[in-house]
Amino acid sequence: MNILDVASGICIGVGIFFIAVAALGIIRLPDVYSRLSAVTKAATLGVVLILAGAFLNKPSWQSLITLGLAAALQFVTAPVGGFALGRAAFRSKSPLAAATGYDQLSDAVEESQQRNPG
């Protein structure tokens, strides 16, 4: 067992931990906005760490390109998808959690509509 095997195992283990935290966030968090935050951040980091662990397990130029492309696509698509889902939830008036004290976006939309009616 060499250092790359240990590093690979650590990366994969930490990645699995982050994905489990994201799954727990989907179940436990109170509203759609908090759930989206858990998924887009924790799951993205988890997937990228698992890809890094896979590269460390079998390092080669081919795996570097393939797994690097997969990680780049994950970093690009997850935040955009999370933003689109969050915007759709806001536009459909999905309720905030009771613990949320202040909705800055709602205030900005109301102010904008008052300035530009129609």
Rank of each mutant, 00 (worst) to 15 (best):
F83M: 10
V39R: 00
A54T: 12
L49Y: 07
A88R: 00
L96T: 00
L67N: 01
L64D: 00
Q113N: 13
I65T: 07
S92M: 10
G13D: 12
A78L: 12
S37M: 08
G13Y: 15
A99Y: 11
A22M: 09
P117R: 08
A52Q: 07
E111G: 14
L24K: 10
A71M: 13
L105Q: 12
A43M: 13
G118H: 09
A7D: 06
A72R: 02
K93V: 00
V47P: 11
R87Q: 05
A42Q: 07
A7F: 13
V21F: 14
I16K: 09
A89H: 01
A23N: 09
I65Q: 13
N2I: 04
A43K: 04
L36K: 01
D5E: 15
A70F: 15
F18Q: 06
T77E: 05
S8W: 10
I50R: 08
A70R: 02
G101Y: 09
E110K: 11
S94D: 08
S94C: 12
S34H: 08
D107P: 04
V6W: 10
P30F: 06
T77D: 05
P59I: 14
D5Y: 09
L36C: 04
L51G: 11
T44H: 03
S60V: 04
L49S: 10
G82Y: 12
G46F: 06
S92H: 12
V47D: 03
V80W: 03
A98T: 08
S37Y: 09
D31G: 04
F55H: 06
V6H: 10
A99E: 15
S92R: 13
S92F: 03
A52N: 09
S92V: 01
G101K: 14
V6S: 10
V32E: 03
L36N: 02
L24G: 05
R91G: 05
I12Q: 07
Q114K: 15
A108W: 02
R87H: 02
A108E: 08
V32L: 03
D31Y: 08
L45D: 02
L24W: 13
V6K: 07
L85K: 01
T40D: 07
Q104Y: 05
G68V: 06
L49F: 14
L36P: 00
I26C: 09
A70M: 14
Q114A: 15
G81D: 00
L4A: 11
V109R: 04
A42W: 11
A99W: 12
